[in-house]
């Protein structure tokens, strides 16, 4: 079995046996979303208007919440140093860890999003764009987040620092993710927004592992 698949399997197995990661992320996603009807009032028309934004912002925050776990545990118990000795380049390892992270946290978000859309009275025309946008956008969130997680390893106040590093870089994903839904509700084509989300993913896929691996090497020095 290739070392890449081995690493993905290891991370998945660890996440599933320790449990709670996926449940925590989805739990946060649901709770943070249902805070909004309490905050802005339960009028269906208002909720329908802002549903796309609420869903994307809370999904983004939920993804952010799980980032700290990406390298932290491996770094603390020293397995990151053992992994660095693997015959697999560190860049590929980051990619494997991002894939596992996305499977554990990104996919559950995508599954939960349509249900929350129902609660917020999201227009029916918006669902395909919501799902396609999340499918293209959440891997980018994991990839960009990996850079921030690797950079803030061992830092004081790592959690707050991580959000300060990562959230500004998340903004383009948010803009085009919401843009796709708004466009398809308004009767326009969601395709340009989705293509831009795809472009962000295509850019993050090679570049983020490079930066994250460089940051991990600094942390291991």
């Amino acid at each position: 079995m290739s070392p890449f698949r081995l690493l993905v399997q290891r991370d998945l197995r660890l996440a599933l046996r320790q449990g709670g990661d996926a449940a925590m992320v989805v739990g946060f996603f649901v709770l943070a979303t249902i805070l909004f009807p309490f905050g802005v009032g339960p009028e269906p028309a208002l909720l329908q208007r802002i549903a796309a934004g609420i869903l994307w912002v809370t999904a983004l925050l939920a993804a952010l919440l799980s980032l700290e776990r990406l390298f932290q545990a491996d770094w603390e118990d020293g397995s990151l140093e053992a992994l660095a000795l693997m015959p697999l380049p560190l860049e590929a390892q980051v990619l494997a860890k991002c894939l596992a992270h996305w499977l554990v946290t990104g996919l559950p978000l995508i599954v939960a999003a349509p249900l929350l859309g129902l609660l917020l009275n999201l227009d029916a025309a918006g669902y395909p764009a919501l799902l396609a946008g999340l499918l293209l956008g959440t891997p980018t969130l994991s990839l960009i987040g990996a850079v921030g997680a690797a950079l803030s390893l061992g830092a004081r106040r790592g959690g707050v620092l991580l959000s300060l590093l990562v959230l500004p870089l998340y903004i383009p994903v948010l803009i085009f993710g919401v843009g796709a839904i708004e466009a398809s509700i308004g009767g326009f084509a969601a395709r340009p927004h989705l293509l831009l989300l795809g472009a962000l993913l295509a850019g993050a896929l090679p570049l983020s592992p490079l930066a994250a691996a460089a940051a991990l090497r600094q942390a291991l020095e």
Binding site: A155, R156, L161
Partner: peptide, 20 residues
């Protein structure tokens, strides 16, 4: 600025900041 000042070892902060 936050990242550069977040480490006990200033050299590590500088390198992490450079990557960011």
């Amino acid at each position: 600025l936050a990242l550069v000042n977040a480490f006990d070892d200033p050299g590590r902060g500088a390198r992490a900041g450079a990557i960011l």
